[in-house]
Design a binder for these strands. Structure first.
Ligand code: NAD
Ligand code: NAD
Lengths: 210, 210
DNA sequence: CTTCTATTGTGCATTTTAGCACAAAGTAGG
DNA sequence: CCTACTTTGTGCTAAAATGCACAATAGAAG
């Protein structure tokens, strides 16, 4: 099946399925059904079966899915069976939280380099990593063969950093900066934006709650 | 117009439009067009005009939109003209970053209380706020009339915290914990999940980049 | 005043996404 | 072996979202 034909919205749901399976596996469960996954995630079972069917037939009629097997299949599809090296740009408050967060490791990502431009921060140790000078960005990224980066610098610096990342060969960017980046079309980008989330919830709150 | 008839996906885009207008206003611009907004956001101009048309007619043919006016209209629609009080649960690494982040204020949100269950952290001052005992959650939320909360506790604690929040009268939750919360249908929820974002990007990376 | 250009708001067509419903196939129990 | 029950994978239908195309109209220029 041609990857170009698979809707992006389907790809966006796969990591949710994978995480649900991981949780089930951690609790010792070995078998599940599209219905059970769906209930946990608030997604219809048909949706889940159809999403999976883009990639093959992973279940058994009457029984459901072998959790270990489906997990591995999803990891392969998403290409997270191996660990990806990730560069983090910005060792501020958020950068530090990201570095200490174990969820990235569990998801298949290892932050192997952290950069900052602040003299005060360069050279400091955070966990296992020493903060590097942003000037070494290109060199280190090439050396380590990194192709994913997380941007955690102020919005005003984000575009400049993104340009440098692209120049260094980065192919996927997760940005915490609240502005749309201008990037070549062959570079993936996702944004993390808590304020947008909040603002779309307040629409639904009744006025008397203000 | 009945709010129930407006697609949620439209509501999700409005905060992006608002932020774009804010940026333009900050640069002294007074007038814009659906096309210009669209180019900045990578959204078609038709999409933007149609989204806005759910709520009224805000532009002038031949001219476009008055930025100040459209901003105020969007703020009213999203109910972010006034400041909302927000409770933060969890004063860990991420909680601290959230507290120091100015973006919430700019978006119409003021964090007015922060809670933790760790004795070490309770009583500590972070910025303008003193960390409160989670035991006081209900009391403080009621007193202050808070109806929005941000969850930044470990995943294992998130459901318990969410239950307590609902019990205290919270109507909208932004959760950083990587698991789906079980909540009454009248409570809004949004998740912030960087790993999901990364995992859906790796799907598109070519294998040789690993 | 007339012409030209720009841009909105929207009816309609197209495309995308979700969901129903069911045959196929497996399990469990007797 | 037979029956009752489960659950998958999918053809088809329905719903939702997007985009085209254009009339309407505002403003600028001459
Ligand atoms: N803190 C949050 O909760 C939060 C939430 C959402 C988004 N964000 C966004 O994340 C980003 C970082 O937030 P933060 O709270 O960590 O800010 P921060 O100011 O604490 O940290 C930013 C860091 O980036 C470094 N930096 C600045 N310019 C740089 C450059 N050109 N190259 C390398 N490093 C550079 C600074 O020295 C600093 O250490 C901001 O864009 C912010 O809008 C933060
Ligand atoms: N750090 C990140 O970059 C990041 C990114 C995404 C998601 N997350 C998620 O955000 C959450 C917090 O992450 P963190 O890095 O700040 O973790 P952390 O361990 O540094 O902080 C968690 C805080 O919550 C407090 N806490 C625990 N149980 C509590 C309870 N029942 N009531 C009140 N407070 C309680 C702890 O005392 C601690 O101070 C986690 O769910 C994590 O998965 C973190």
């Amino acid at each position: 099946m041609n990857p170009l034909e698979i809707p992006e919205i389907v790809i966006r749901r796969l990591p949710l399925y994978l995480r649900t399976l991981n949780l089930m596996a951690a609790q010792g469960q070995t078998v599940t059904s599209s219905q059970e996954i769906g209930e946990r995630l608030g997604i219809s079972s048909t949706q889940i079966r159809k999403d999976l069917s883009y990639f093959g037939e992973f279940g058994k009629q009457g029984t459901g899915y072998n959790i270990e097997y489906l997990r591995e299949q999803l990891r392969q599809i998403l290409q997270v069976s191996q660990r990806w090296k990730v560069a983090l740009i910005g060792a501020g408050d958020l950068g530090r939280a990201v570095l200490r967060y174990s969820g990235f490791e569990e998801g298949g990502f290892e932050i192997t380099a952290v950069f900052d431009k602040d003299e005060q921060k360069i050279g400091r140790q955070i966990g296992k990593l020493k903060v590097l000078d942003i000037a070494k960005l290109h060199e280190v990224i090439r050396e380590q063969g990194i192709c994913i980066a997380i941007i955690a610098v102020p919005a005003s610096e984000a575009q400049e950093v993104a340009d440098a990342l692209v120049n260094a060969g980065i192919k996927a960017i997760l940005s915490y900066a609240p502005l749309p980046l201008r990037l070549p079309s062959n570079v993936q980008v996702h944004y993390i934006d808590p304020v947008i989330g909040l603002q779309s919830m307040t629409y639904y709150l009744s006025p008397e709650q203000i």
